[in-house]
Amino acid sequence: MSKKLTLDALRQLREDKQKELSKRDPANKDIQVIIGMGTCGIAAGAKNTFAAFLDILDAKNITNVLVRQTGCMGLCHSEPTVEVITHDMPPVIYGNVNKEACEKIISQHILEGKLVDDLICDRPAIDIIR
């Protein structure tokens, strides 16, 4: 029989996690990973992309990243799409972000500050999105 996790138990887990994190890394959350979760993104597997970011960030104990969701970014042909915003680089949209791509984005872009060239998408031109 599985042990059902209640909201109280969840609160306790959160406090334990907070204590653990505050010992290790008080850094500000200065990096944003924004995942396109419109109909097109969901149909192309954006939910798995969302899960992959959570799993990898957790496994690597990276604590200065916020994971956000947004709707369609206008790049339906390259879903799942992910925008990465860091304080020292221009905002970049990556396309076709599967689990392998998540690994690359985290290890190269977020940790090393290097663009993942083969995944970069151009933003849609204004005359096209009109």
């Binding site: 909201l7 109280d8 969840l10 609160r11 887990l13 959160r14 996690k17 994190l21 959350k29 970011f53 959570l54 799993d55 960030l57 957790d58 990276i62 604590t63 990243v65 916020l66 994971v67 956000r68």
Partner: peptide
């Protein structure tokens, strides 16, 4: 119970 639902640790919980 958790705080911000944009933090990976809270999303994982």
């Amino acid at each position: 119970a958790l705080g911000s639902l944009e933090e990976p640790a809270n999303l994982t919980l």
